[in-house]
Design a protein around this nucleic acid. Structure first.
Lengths: 301, 301
DNA sequence: ATGATGGATAACCAATCTGCTATGCATCCG
DNA sequence: CGGATGCATAGCAGATTGGTTATCCATCAT
């Protein structure tokens, strides 16, 4: 691009494009119409082609103009967002929907890091079953949902950024009698906790059970709640089908173990889902911070 | 943002950030070090806080600086891309991976529209089974893949933008004897064409068959090829499990029909998959054009 | 320690910018 | 048709810009 293009040109261009005329914009900006006219003429010269068709006294975007407008708009928006990010003080609220998978391990780090970088933005977390969160997302009541990839049928108008891959495991208390015995065997002998029908991982678990001749198995209870599931597992011989992330902490401390299922069958994508056109304050940063956090962790681990 | 911030400031800032020093940048830009020093100082004043820590004679980005850098970088990139989009002449090549679903109906329109808007960019289309295309995408041999959402396990580092929802249907020639009889019944009486094991929709079809007590059904052949599948269907009583988009044209002309399956079970997301960080020429425009095309079609239809 | 390197600051200045007014011309609306 | 509205062009002027040189100071490497 010609280096003489200035932000002033871009701003003027964008205003004119939205307004559809010079005089109104000029008045609004407190300058005269000729000044603005010249600014626009300059830009068109620098870019090498007209941005508007002069139809009578109306200005309508050329194809090239419309194309450039998109880019220019994005550019200015990015810049403004950058400056806004620096301004201390209130920066609005970023509302995030949290699925259980990420609540234990990933999200705390992301949140802490986010707070460092964007202290002016308040975070509000909403939890619940995925369909609830997806509806909130669609309605605009939350700005993003972080967790497992939603079902394909729910993705219209949404955008998904992948963070990492995560499996469903079969968790038990550390001194569970099944020990290292293969999972199907253990499943027949112990009470089982399944994810509820509303959970994204439930179909995957059902498939596994069917494949191992355990279709129709009657669970002790259905839950993905850490507090509840863990409590039951620790106090009994129960086995729990759950995303690894949910019990990552307990696996780390040795309080719980993952029984070998003999298959890495039950893995799925975890990431950030947002509305495609959303520009909530800090959203882009949150997504990027999440990615960086995962990455650095992967490299460290 | 303070309106006195100029592109010059931004450019200088970005250069300094990458270089890590003033003198080198000043030399490279053909200006003196004091000039650049002042430019930077101005920017920091306008933004309200320092972008660099002066550690000895080294300049290292502050947290705020790093944050702003991301935004600023994106902004400049967007602007440059916009200007580049206007420049007529060679604009590089955008290599797209095409899955069968979109080849018939959606992609032709998108391509034509893209050609209008970005005539300088050459499009090169690659087809094949999805895992092949995903590998090409990952390796950088294609810039995007358009079609059904890839399996979760393949999405690491990728980004997915949803375009529309599409079902798998059971297609047959228009005067098929099964007529409006429910699909499960018809399936027992006719040869069946299934998608190959490498196709994304195969598991979905298998689930359907299992649910209808037809697991293990032996297909006439496995294919998602329009030419082959259509040829066989038209010349026989064969029934074909295929994404609606593949035979959309034939459904439109009445040459083929969709048998009622009594379930909208087999739907899935269609969209654009790309590397998260990719900035191939025209990529963003292609994705946006695809979205607009779908949208306008949805509104029109 | 010491010379070399790199950044900050100050004083200065020419070129450019960015506004203005005046004016012309086309179009739209009664 | 005629007045009002809106864009383009031209000429002009003050403010600003964006560079310069000179100088100082801190740090780093030898």
């Amino acid at each position: 691009m010609h280096p003489a293009v200035k932000l002033r040109h871009i701003r003027a261009f964008l205003d004119i494009a939205t307004e559809g005329g010079l005089s109104a914009v000029a008045r609004a900006q407190g300058i005269t119409q000729p000044a603005l006219s010249r600014t626009l003429a300059e830009l068109e010269t620098l870019l090498g082609q007209p941005m508007f068709l002069r139809q009578g006294r109306r200005l309508v975007l050329t194809e090239a103009g419309a194309l450039f407008r998109r880019h220019a708009g994005a550019a200015v928006q990015a810049l403004e967002a950058g400056a806004a990010a620096l301004r201390p003080g209130v920066g609005g609220t970023l509302r995030i929907g949290v699925l259980p998978t990420v609540a234990t391990r990933v999200l705390p780090r992301v949140v802490l890091r986010f707070r460092e970088l964007r202290p002016e933005i308040m975070l509000a977390a909403e939890t619940g079953p995925h369909f609830h969160l997806m509806r909130l997302l669609r309605e605009g009541a939350v700005d993003l949902v972080i967790g497992r990839l939603p079902g394909a049928s729910e993705m219209a108008g949404l955008r998904f950024d992948h963070l990492y891959e995560e499996e469903v495991i079969l968790a038990a208390r550390h001194d569970h009698p099944a020990g290292q015995r293969p999972a199907p065997e253990a499943l027949a002998a112990s009470p089982v906790i399944l994810p509820p029908a509303t959970a994204l991982i439930r179909p995957v678990v059902d498939d596994y059970l069917t494949a191992n001749g355990l279709a129709g198995l009657r669970p002790l209870i259905e839950t993905v709640s850490l507090a509840l599931g863990r409590g039951i597992c620790l106090a009994s011989d129960a086995l729990w089908f759950i995303s690894r992330g949910v019990v990552a902490h307990e696996l780390g401390t040795g309080e719980m173990i993952a029984l070998p299922t003999g298959a890495r069958f039950m893995s799925g994508a975890v990431g950030v889902t947002r509305r495609q056109e959303s520009v909530a304050p800090g959203l882009a940063d949150f997504a990027e911070i999440a990615r960086e956090t995962i990455e650095s962790e992967a490299n460290a681990g």
